[in-house]
């Protein structure tokens, strides 16, 4: 039986003071063409939520509320999820696929991975990656703690390049991620799809306020899920 084509999910959330938090998930094929798009209505946490959740509110909204819902609603299987907020890395604890973080500044967001970096099926066993995977070419560099000593513990995260864009991945996901990335030869830009999601969310939000135009709609090739 032929292996199903890999799909690439992109997830981001727009935070707006007026409308609230709106999330979008775009599923692409290996060439970067859209397969599916899911987006939420804006979420507006109440004052009580802000008090109760405190500093954890952002992560709760991004991962528990919006992210989970969008992944659940996605009709097509996701091979890998790319996000551009480190809070979304928390999704990885409940997902069977790798969640990788677009670390544009390449700063340290390691702690997010510290919490969720263990392999999904081995989170309690603390297994290590096979050493043969170290030579894979798409690795940009390893986490600083790895550079100092050959006996140092496995870093929780690594930087990897996805179609020209830097992403931070959990070390435990490296083999799987690199296998998926290797099949993305036609993806033009690894980070650009986030722009598409933002454009699409803006479009969806503007639809609400847009006055009905005078001309009738014409039918287009997209079917509501």
């Amino acid at each position: 039986m032929a292996k199903a084509a890999e799909t690439l999910g992109y997830y981001t959330v727009i935070e707006d003071q007026d409308t609230g938090w709106t999330g979008g998930l775009l599923l692409l094929n290996q060439a970067g063409r859209p397969l599916e798009f899911q987006c939420t209505l804006p979420v507006r946490p109440s004052r009580a939520h802000e008090i109760l959740f405190g500093a954890t509110l952002r992560e709760h909204v991004i991962s528990e509320v919006i992210g989970k819902l969008l992944i659940d609603r996605c009709r097509n299987p996701i091979s890998m999820l790319c996000c551009d907020m480190h809070e979304a890395v928390a999704l990885s604890k409940d997902c069977s696929f790798p969640v990788i973080f677009h670390d544009e500044s390449q700063q340290e967001h390691d702690e997010a991975f510290e919490r969720f970096s263990k392999p999904r099926n081995e989170r309690s066993t603390n297994n290590r990656e096979p050493s043969s995977s170290h030579s894979l070419p798409s690795l940009l560099h390893r986490h600083r703690s790895d550079a100092s000593s050959s006996h140092a513990p496995e870093p929780s995260s690594l930087m990897i390049e996805v179609s020209g864009a830097p992403f931070r991945i959990a070390s435990s996901d490296r083999v799987k991620v690199e296998s998926i990335v290797a099949g993305l030869g036609d993806l033009p830009d690894g980070a650009e799809p986030f722009e598409r999601i933002r454009e699409a969310i803006k479009e969806a939000q503007s639809q609400i306020s847009r006055a009905a135009t005078s001309r009738p709609a014409t039918s287009r090739p997209a079917s509501a899920a």
Binding site: A31, D186, P188, D189, R196, E199, A212, T213, T218, R220
Partner: peptide, 25 residues
């Protein structure tokens, strides 16, 4: 004149042409 959201998103979510050209697609 395209007003259905799914129709509009179909176009908005396509990759930009400059990237398609740049990638050789």
């Amino acid at each position: 004149d395209i007003v259905k959201l799914q129709d509009r998103l179909y176009y908005l979510l396509q990759p930009p042409l400059d990237l398609l050209v740049g990638s050789g697609q």
